[in-house]
Design a protein around this nucleic acid. Structure first.
Length: 527
DNA sequence: GACGAGGTTGACAAT
DNA sequence: AATTGTCAACCTCGT
């Protein structure tokens, strides 16, 4: 008995290594490839910004083209997903809905409600993991039900599991010929919309173009240089080169235009042919495993993307400062290195990993003492590769809220960028107002004399802001704050342990210690 | 329980 | 110039 199937694309916007799409083709007499463009859902659950809309629409357009080549097409249906499904299931006599399994709570919820709909309307639901190397549940099981919280431990568990699933075979025109494709006039009716149709600005300065085709091309480009692949060590890549020093494949993995399993095995093959190659955590495969690490921890940690109620996250009373947050977000901190990064982020939707570290440290424990959740939201909106687990995980890392604890290591907004770009070419590119400053002032233009500023055609305080904080003072102050937070946390943990059998007693003591914290806070404020 | 090692990528000085 | 060591106000985990 063959199905009449809707294959619901969500993140896996590709035809290569798509296990659930293959399963759909093999079990169906008719297949409707559908993307439901649920704007309310995408905006509220993923906070996607204009550049990400562009990237998504380009990816859909590419998917449509690739489907057409195999004799099918993509139907992009706009509307609330449950309503859309309800309408079309009856209209098309659907007996099966297939979709890739995802780990984000909002995607899980979507799958659950599709399951309920299936029970009500009488269709089957098939979902398979395709977005990560492993089924994260297996990693959790092997670690005794809880996620491994260090990378080393994580690698150890993986060594017990063996290699990840191999990619499934490529789809061919024959696969699609066996299933009836949607009518051509249906395809006409459900075209991929243009940015203007969604009232998104038609222009984008991003050099990243969405889609499987583009992703595969970039992948091939990078894999041709075997020496580069085998010697890749992440910390040695340059955050402020004018062209990306890393692969720049993250947006494609994030949207599923590229399969991580495909990349993993391509790398394995290259490693196998080489005498030496770098290893995790710094190797290219190591980067894929970092992704997997955060997926695993996120899948088993409640409230992973927030501080409150998140058991692995240090509880910190961050400042609420809308004005400073806004200046950080809009590249007006007065530190050219920070502002250049934030400008590249806004214009192109991608910045180097270490550049992310620099601005994240600056916003949180380094200088502004503003919650990592605020930074995470900005990245989520602006980064093409924004990913639920990786984004939150790295923000906790950088703010020393989880995973990483050496909070005395603070990225200096003046010196850090200088090492790899002493002339400040990166700053000159993204902050043209500073283009003519002499190199010795480019990272701290406020130290130039008035004459020198006039000469450079940029008066600090007028054309470009003064630095919003004194970085020595701010970072020293924050070190004190962080020390207090940790002492406090240590004490609370102690209390909780001592009175483990007496819940009431714990509550009383905790309340008291919270009172003490706030008292001290008041004392600090009035100092 | 004390102790030491290790932790994906800090700054700075000395070689 | 590039590597190495020190400083350090780190925490967690294993022996």
């Amino acid at each position: 008995m063959l199905h009449r199937t809707i294959h619901l694309f969500r993140k896996e916007l590709r035809l290569h290594d798509n296990p659930v799409l293959l399963a759909a083709l093999e079990s169906s007499a008719a297949l409707y490839p559908v993307y439901i463009l649920d704007r309310a859902f995408l905006t509220s659950s993923m906070h996607i910004g204009a550049l990400r809309w562009h990237f998504l629409l380009q990816s859909l357009e590419d998917l449509h083209k690739n489907l057409c080549q195999l004799g099918s097409c993509l139907l992009v249906i706009q509307g609330e997903y449950e309503t859309v499904l309800r309408d079309h299931i009856q209209k098309w006599n659907i007996t099966q809905v297939t979709l890739s399994a995802e780990m984000e709570p909002f995607y899980k919820e979507m799958e659950a409600s599709i399951q309920r709909l299936g029970a009500e309307l009488g269709f089957e639901v098939l979902s398979l993991v395709g977005h990560s190397l492993y089924d994260t549940q297996r990693i959790l099981d092997l670690n005794g039900g809880s996620p491994p919280l260090t990378y080393k431990r994580f690698l150890h568990i993986l060594s017990l599991l063996g290699d990840p699933e191999v990619p499934v075979r490529n789809l061919t025109a024959e696969d699609f010929q066996r299933c009836r494709a949607p009518d051509p006039d249906l395809a006409e009716c459900y075209r991929v919309p243009l940015p203007v149709d969604l009232k998104i600005s038609p222009e984008s300065l991003s050099p990243w173009r969405g889609g499987e085709t583009e992703g595969l091309q970039r992948l091939e480009q990078h894999l041709t240089d075997q020496g580069w692949v085998t010697s890749f060590t992440k910390p040695r890549t340059i955050p402020n080169s004018l062209l990306p020093s890393t692969t720049g494949l993250s947006p494609y993995f994030s949207m599923g235009c590229l399969s991580v399993r495909t990349f993993f095995y391509r790398l394995s093959n290259i490693y196998a042919q080489a005498k030496h190659h770098s290893l995790p955590p710094v190797s290219l495969q190591g980067q894929l495993l970092w992704r997997e690490f955060f997926y695993t921890v996120a899948s088993a940690t409640p409230n992973f993307t927030q501080m409150a109620g998140n058991p692995i996250c240090l509880q910190i009373c961050w400042y609420k400062d809308a004005e400073r947050l806004h200046k950080w977000k809009t590249a007006q901190t007065g530190f050219p290195w920070i502002d250049a990064i934030m400008t590249q982020l806004r214009q192109e939707g991608w910045i180097h990993h270490l550049a992310r570290h620099a601005v994240a440290c600056f916003l949180t424990r380094g200088h502004l003492w503003i919650s990592w959740e605020e930074g995470m939201k900005v990245f989520e909106e602006l980064l093409l590769d924004a990913d639920y687990s990786i984004n939150a995980g790295n923000w906790m890392w950088l703010s020393a809220s989880a995973f990483f604890h050496q909070y005395t290591r603070i990225f200096c907004p003046v010196h850090f960028g200088k090492r790899t770009d002493p002339q400040g070419n990166y700053i000159r590119k993204y902050l043209p107002i500073l283009k003519n400053f002499p190199s010795k002032y480019i990272y701290e233009p406020w130290t130039a004399s008035e004459d020198e500023q006039k000469q450079a055609g940029c008066i600090i305080g007028q054309d470009y802001p003064f630095p919003m904080v004194n970085h020595k003072e701010a970072s020293d102050h924050n070190l004190q704050l962080m020390k207090q937070v940790r002492e406090e946390q240590h004490r609370t943990a102690q209390l909780t342990r001592d009175d483990a059998d007496d819940p009431m007693e714990i509550k009383v003591k905790l309340d008291r210690s919270e009172e003490n914290i706030s008292k001290r806070k008041v004392a600090r404020m009035t100092e």
